[in-house]
């Protein structure tokens, strides 16, 4: 019950931030946390994942960069290809930005081996050092999805065995959540790309 309530609050905060005027600095999304008595913006928790190149990435290796994240699985017959098409659109627009990366997390590590992820990335024809296809164990990726506010469940009734949302999340160089959009809706991705642009400007001026 408490859990449901907190999800409602988080969702409400996320939705409210959508309508913020564009000229302002991007908002910090998620619930504030108390660390040693000091209020801090929500951060993505510690992660350590293996990519399609069999190299490890973690919060620290990502941290000079900003990145967008999504959750998918290769055999997903429902929303995933649509979301990937939008991720590809984002990739194409920011391909030449050295401080911009993408992470697609597989929700189905049993079937999506590193080798299959590599093949998948090659079929998308994207740079392996810009767009990571990341894998960890089942429980960890489910928890990680929640920490990105993506609902994901193992559901044998759902197409492909998983039920999940197609959100694309924007994370800044310090691990804060700064924006999101619905990857299934191209119209929501357009303003989201402006948010990415704004965040890139923000980190450039900060250096």
């Amino acid at each position: 019950m408490k859990y449901t309530l907190s999800i409602i609050i988080i969702t409400a905060t996320l939705l409210a931030s959508c309508t913020a005027p564009k000229t302002e600095k991007l908002p910090y999304l998620g619930k504030k946390e108390l660390v040693d008595g000091v209020e801090q913006n929500y951060k993505i928790p510690q992660f350590s994942l293996m990519t399609q190149d069999s190299t490890m990435i973690d919060n620290k290796s990502m941290s000079p960069n900003i990145y967008v994240a999504d959750f998918f699985f290769i055999s997903c017959p429902s929303i995933c290809p649509k979301v990937k098409k939008q991720m590809l659109r984002i990739y194409d627009r920011f391909e030449d930005e050295p401080r911009f990366k993408l992470i697609s997390h597989t929700l189905d590590p049993k079937r999506d081996t590193i080798q299959r992820l590599k093949q998948y990335a090659e079929n998308l024809e994207v740079d392996h050092d810009k767009w990571y296809f990341a894998r960890t164990d089942q429980d960890t990726v489910m928890d990680l999805a929640f920490s990105y506010f993506v609902n994901a469940f193992v559901d044998n009734e759902a197409p492909g065995g998983f039920d999940h949302s197609g959100k694309i999340i924007l994370i800044d160089q310090e691990g804060h959540v700064r924006g999101f959009c619905e990857g299934t809706e191209p119209d929501s991705v357009t303003p989201f790309m402006d948010d990415i642009e704004a965040l890139l400007d923000e980190i450039k001026t900060k250096k």
Partner: peptide, 15 residues
Amino acid sequence: ESCHMADGSGLAKLI
């Protein structure tokens, strides 16, 4: 549509 897209354009070398 989820795979072939609303305009039928597909997805890279996947669809």
